[in-house]
Every structure is written in structure tokens, then in C-alpha cells.
Design a protein around this nucleic acid. Structure first.
Length: 303
RNA sequence: GGCGAGAUAGCUCAGUCGGUAGAGCAGAGGACUGAAAAUCCUUGUGUCGGCGGUUCGAUUCCGCCUCUCGCCA
């Protein structure tokens, strides 16, 4: 039997890093990050990335693995994670997966990508249709591959979804219904591992206070400088990085000016919205085995 | 102290030629196949500042009061 994967998640600012470090040190574990931004080099303060010192205490994986101008994605992450897990286990150590990105977390429980590799030519065609003809154009083109019943399956008001559907139909020649069916048949990439998933939680009120403090600390620690540096490294060519909370607002501030208090407030508000979305993931998409309320638990036992 | 403008949803403000009101933001709920901290969907009853007057009926008109912001003293 393969060793278990220990998964620790929870909303932003709940206190994952601290809990993870202490568990990992006591349990001979290495940490595999499950965060959609920590793999970018140089995005440190705004992502609340574990510090150098913390990373010296416990080896971290999937952190600082690509330059900020190179877009990463779940597919690459899942492969990277698979390799990391093999490596860690081969060293006789345990794997502690830590992070709050729902979609990435889902990769441990279910297939999150299919086998359709969309080529550059089709990708460009789709982008062109989207740009010139909008949703209507995309849907028109989708009808070449789909019946009305297939189109019902699609969130047809969401441009991102419609573009993705068209690219995959075009590439594979299959209908949305067919692609869905094939996708549903794919095994979970980590099916062979036993998993135990613990979720850390706190009330939204507590999180609001912690988020406000955290945002203030980020600026005290030099977030403005960090963002200036990232701008020179081409962060704007990476949509995901440039639109990360704390970064998109700060980039706008550096370019258009504004008021620091409002900047902090905006980041705090956007962070709270992220927390809400994370909650939805934990309620409906990736359900934990155990929930620990850190507001009321003095000595939490994670696993 | 005088003059002017304003007071409507948690915030910024529309609006009602008198028939008890609506946007954006925030908040809440949700979706999720390679950008996911993204993208998209659903969701708006609040003494319309207070007290009186006119009226069948006032948040809307009139008077007084309170507060806020300007300008003048």
C-alpha cells in the first residue's frame, strides 16, 4: 500500500503555513504547495509565500519553479506534483500538501484535464473569433460540432468557457457531450494514494481582521517595491500573475496613482471575496474529511 | 450669524410632473476541463433626516427643526 497523502487546506489568512510547518517538522514530511501563484519566482510578499527561513525548516515543492512571465496551469501542476510525490516518498519522507487553490486541490481527487491538446493554430483561430465576433461568433462556430442539446450543457454566457469548449471541439472533432462523457471516464491521477484531507477554518469576522492586518504588513514589508521589480520582469505578460489579488490593484496604483488607504482597502475586499469563493470549493467541490476551527481549537491535531 | 446645496439600501448616488422607490459597489448564495487569487450566474423593503401642514393619499409640494458640505461674514 502506498503511503498516504496528507492534505491541508483552508481559506487565505487562516494560518495554513504555520500549522503545516509544525506538523511537517514533527512528522518527517516535506511540503508540496497547492497554490496557483506560489510557483512564480518573485511573487513573495503579495502571495504570503513561506519565507526563506521557513523553507529552510522544511523542504518545499512547487514553489518558485517558473519565472513570473511564464504562465503555469493545473495540467503542469498535476504532473509536477506527481513527480514531487514520487521523489519525496523515495526519500522515505511523508508528503504534506498545503494550499488554498480549490481547482488545484481538486487535481488530487479527480481528473481536472483531458487528453485533448489544443494546437496553436486553433487556439489563435478561437481567440480571433472571440475578439471579432464575441460570444455570438463562438457559439455559431460551436454549432458545427454540436447539436442544441450539446450546447445546453455549456455555460454559454461565460466567454472563457465557450472559448475553451470551441477549442476542444475543434481540435478533437468531438461534441461537447462526447468530450464530457470521455472526461467523466478519466481516472483520478492520484487514485492509487490514500488521502486524508483536513481543512482549517475561522469565522469570516476573524478572517476579516487577519486579512486587514496582513495587507498592512505586506506594504510594510515592501510590496510596492516587489511589484515594481516584477513589472520590470514582465509580470504583465502573464495574465494570472498580473491579476493576482494584491498585484493587480498595486499595478494599477503604480500606474494611475491613487490613495494608499483605498489601495489597502481594495485589496482587503478582494481577498475577502476570494475567501468566499474558497469556502464554496470546500463546501461543494473538494470536501474535507476533518474541519478544524482555529478560532476555538487550542492545540489542533491536524491528522 | 447670513446665503446656497444636500439629507433616499452597509457605501456612492438616480428617481418619483403627489399613488410608499432603483442602479453601481459592498454583502449573500452558486457554477467550474489546461488563465482558477481567473471567468461566469442568481440575489435589492429601505421609518426615502425629524415634526407639523395641504391632500382621498406625501419620500415627492409647503413650513419649522436637526445635521452635513460649500461660499460670505
Amino acid at each position: 500500500m502506498l503511503p498516504s497523502l496528507y492534505i491541508l487546506s483552508g481559506p487565505t489568512a487562516v494560518g495554513k503555513t504555520e500549522s503545516a510547518l509544525s506538523w511537517a517538522m514533527k512528522n518527517n514530511a516535506e511540503i508540496l504547495s497547492c497554490d496557483s501563484l506560489l510557483f512564480y519566482k518573485g511573487m513573495d510578499i503579495g502571495t504570503a509565500k513561506p519565507t526563506r527561513e521557513e523553507q529552510l525548516l522544511v523542504p518545499h515543492h512547487a514553489v518558485d519553479i517558473v519565472p513570473v512571465n511564464e504562465q503555469y496551469n493545473v495540467g503542469r501542476y498535476a504532473e509536477f506534483a506527481k513527480q514531487s510525490i514520487r521523489d519525496i516518498h523515495s526519500r522515505g519522507k511523508q508528503v504534506l500538501i498545503v494550499g488554498g487553490s480549490g481547482f488545484y486541490l481538486k487535481a488530487f481527487f479527480a481528473a481536472v484535464t483531458d487528453n485533448v491538446e489544443v494546437g496553436d493554430a486553433i487556439r489563435k483561430e478561437v481567440a480571433l473569433i472571440s475578439q471579432n465576433e464575441g460570444l455570438a461568433g463562438l457559439l455559431r462556430k460551436l454549432r458545427e460540432f454540436n447539436t442544441e442539446a450539446d450546447l445546453e450543457l455549456l455555460d454559454s454566457r461565460n466567454p472563457r468557457r465557450v472559448e475553451a469548449a470551441l477549442a476542444r471541439c475543434w481540435q478533437s472533432g468531438k461534441s461537447i457531450g462526447r468530450l464530457r462523457y470521455d472526461f467523466s471516464m478519466l481516472p483520478s491521477p492520484f487514485a492509487e494514494f490514500p488521502k486524508t484531507f483536513t481543512l482549517l477554518s475561522r469565522s469570516r469576522e476573524t478572517l476579516r481582521v487577519r486579512v486587514k492586518q496582513r495587507v498592512k504588513q505586506m506594504f510594510d514589508s515592501g510590496l510596492l517595491e516587489e511589484v515594481r521589480r516584477l513589472l520590470t520582469q514582465g509580470i504583465e505578460s502573464n495574465f494570472s500573475a498580473a491579476n493576482a489579488i494584491g498585484y493587480r490593484e498595486t499595478i494599477a496604483y503604480l500606474k494611475d496613482g491613487g490613495n494608499m488607504d483605498e489601495l489597502e482597502e481594495q485589496i482587503a475586499v478582494n481577498t475577502m471575496q476570494l475567501i468566499r469563493k474558497q469556502d464554496i470549493w470546500f463546501r461543494h467541490q473538494v470536501r474535507p474529511d476533518t474541519v478544524i476551527d482555529l478560532d476555538t481549537t487550542v492545540n489542533p491535531v491536524l491528522f
